[in-house]
């Protein structure tokens, strides 16, 4: 099937579902080509598992070009593997050595329960967004797009925050399993843009409250999140969010539930 010359040992976390205990199972990945992506290597392993009539390793993935944020995998101590600023689907086997043992684990966080093998439930991220990660406008009846001039530097900075793909690597990398980088990226994006000002201070409170409710850890500014983010979202977003949050709590009229309607 595959025609490469790499042979690897995989230690893969297998877990039937969220209620069952999991364990590591060792697999051989043979004749792997260095040009394969990491997920293609797993595809090959899965094909051989299925031909034996056994259940393939389950992992989340979709676009395989680093933008949908669906793939995860904690590979040899690092989310999305050893390379900087890429997702697992963009990782290629040439980043590994022939004969190497690769440990593959799911994201570990109380807020991200394992649903099967290497896949976790990241709906906590959706719920945080639902708590206020938007500008409350209906379709239609909005002003002309050019009626709101936005300085380029602000637009660019907001864009940098907006590039987050919601993969959860920040949580996975953080020693505290904190979701601050993710939450702050969204808060920052909308908080910087003129369109987002109206709800700026209620939004940050609602989103932080939801984040706390989901059971993520607390940020200690270690910077692991920033280092592992495939889109290189910066820690500055966290500071910006903190500023908005304290400003909201101590100096503004806005309440968290203003956004609930």
């Amino acid at each position: 099937m595959s025609n490469g010359n790499m042979n690897l040992t995989l230690k893969v976390w297998r877990q039937q579902d969220s209620k069952t205990a999991g364990k590591f199972v060792t697999y051989k990945a043979e004749h792997i080509s260095p040009d394969m992506s990491f997920l293609e290597m797993l595809d090959v392993v899965n094909e051989s598992i299925m031909l034996k009539g056994e259940e393939p390793i389950y992992f989340d993935h979709d676009c395989r070009e680093g933008i949908c944020g669906m793939c995860s995998l904690y590979i040899n101590g690092r989310p999305h593997g050893p390379k900087r600023a890429i997702t697992t689907c963009q990782l290629h086997m040439r980043s590994f050595k022939d004969g190497q043992t690769i440990t593959i684990e799911p994201w570990r966080a109380a807020a991200f329960p394992v649903i099967k093998d290497l896949a976790v439930d990241r709906s906590a991220f959706d719920r945080i967004q639902q708590a206020g990660g938007y500008i409350s406008i209906n379709t239609g009846g909005v002003p002309d797009a050019n009626e709101i001039p936005i300085p380029k530097v602000i637009a660019d900075e907001a864009f940098n925050s907006a590039t987050c793909i919601g993969c959860g690597a920040c949580v996975a990398a953080c020693k505290n399993a904190s979701a601050m980088l993710f939450v702050s990226a969204k808060v920052s994006q909308l908080g910087m843009l003129p369109q987002g000002q109206t709800e700026r201070y209620s939004r940050v409170q609602s989103m932080v409250a939801q984040m706390d409710e989901e059971g993520f850890g607390n940020c200690t500014n270690t910077g692991a999140c920033e280092a592992e983010c495939p889109k290189e979202i910066t820690l500055t977003n966290i500071a910006r969010m903190n500023n908005d949050f304290f400003s909201a709590k101590f100096f503004r009229e806005a309440h968290a539930n203003d956004i609930a309607e």
Partner: peptide
């Protein structure tokens, strides 16, 4: 209190450790 919370936020730790780039001091506060 924060340390206890943070431990609770990751009940199962990684078998392969944590090799993400970050300063030693930040990791060992």
């Amino acid at each position: 209190i924060l340390t206890i919370n943070n431990r609770k936020a990751r009940p199962v730790s990684y078998a392969s450790g944590n090799d993400s780039p970050q300063s030693w001091s930040a990791k060992n506060m």
